[in-house]
Write a protein that binds this DNA or RNA. Sequence first.
DNA 1: TCTACTATTGATCAATCGATCAATAAGTTG
DNA 2: CAACTTATTGATCGATTGATCAATAGTAGA
Lengths: 212, 212
Amino acid sequence: MSRPVRKKAARKTPAERSAEITDAARDVALEQGLYAVTLRSVAARIDVAPALVAHYEPNMDALIASTFGTVVATELAEVAALLAPLPTPRERLAQLLDTLLDGTRADVTVIWVEAWAMGRRNEALAQRVRDEMDDWHAFLLGIVESGVAAGEFETDDAASVAWQLLGMIDGLNAHALVRWADSSSDLGDRGARLGQAVEGMLGIARGALTGP
Amino acid sequence: MSRPVRKKAARKTPAERSAEITDAARDVALEQGLYAVTLRSVAARIDVAPALVAHYEPNMDALIASTFGTVVATELAEVAALLAPLPTPRERLAQLLDTLLDGTRADVTVIWVEAWAMGRRNEALAQRVRDEMDDWHAFLLGIVESGVAAGEFETDDAASVAWQLLGMIDGLNAHALVRWADSSSDLGDRGARLGQAVEGMLGIARGALTGP
DNA sequence: TCTACTATTGATCAATCGATCAATAAGTTG
DNA sequence: CAACTTATTGATCGATTGATCAATAGTAGA
């Protein structure tokens, strides 16, 4: 005979409560994926009535879209911060591949994959996905172009190369999502192997990226 | 006042009806994705009561898993048949990249992406996904190894290269899913650009794959 | 202290989903 | 033609989902 333990949620500032809901949605997404971000799951996580979440958000499609956006934007900011101190484009690129393919961010990968699927039925989300992809592309493009300018890389179409890089990274991560426990896919070696492909794309000598 | 037009479905052989259901599920998946494969959508497509579909399938998770399997296995068979007549591994690889990246199979790409996401909540599907990935990997591995044997390719880890190839293809296709109307991603050029990366991975001279 | 505002809730709806089961009717067999 | 098998159905259940709305109860300002 256990009744719901919640009596009544403490009254908070709209700004506070809104942030709380946003954070809860992000946590649910990171832990269980975008499909688990529901009116009730978000409400339960902050011990509040489902109607309150609905009160603060225009609709669930919007909350899911914004949740995707903040998670992915945060990821990009983290990676950018990680690469910033590195002196050369070559080192930044090597570090980028390393950190994105080490399996540490599987929770974010799930969100990407789910977003590609969900985007077909959630236009707000689809738009956010395109926006975040553009941001990531711009980031990669910056690295590639600075490398070309420094004479480290060689390509006649940096923008296209940047898209290819992004596609490779996402594809390999999506695969790892399903086969993470598989030794034959050689998780530890993914970065190095992709490095060889990238060396090919950028006209770098073999090992220049994966080596020291 | 339009009542349902269906009076009573013609009685059919279990084998016939079962095949009909299987086909309907496949069609729904190709047209609207795996998430649209529901008891009712499949039943409606062949003008039959939802309970009949439930009668023929153990449960929807199983039907979705087997639907994924047949769609993807068919795709592999088609591609294999397309490459079979080509004389050299280099030509087969070039053709493979070409046909898989020309945007013709977006419907199958949707199914792949949805399967990666759904697999986390549908163990039967997850197993099928791994199986089909293994089949694709084996297929690519065959091409790579024959190329190495013929002296056209050069690598010390063909299995790993095959996984990388698969990951790249899937990632680029997933991206195209969201940005199909985008000219900046240069759909037509995807194959050629990936070709350069692959040339790098396999130690082929630039242009040997993308050229004539 | 009293009043106005509004954050919060419970109740409730309509959709959609997978699943079960007794009843019906179409064939098949003897 | 009668008896039997079984393909097919309608009805229905329980879960989930997003969403709405009148009622309630903190809180700030007059």
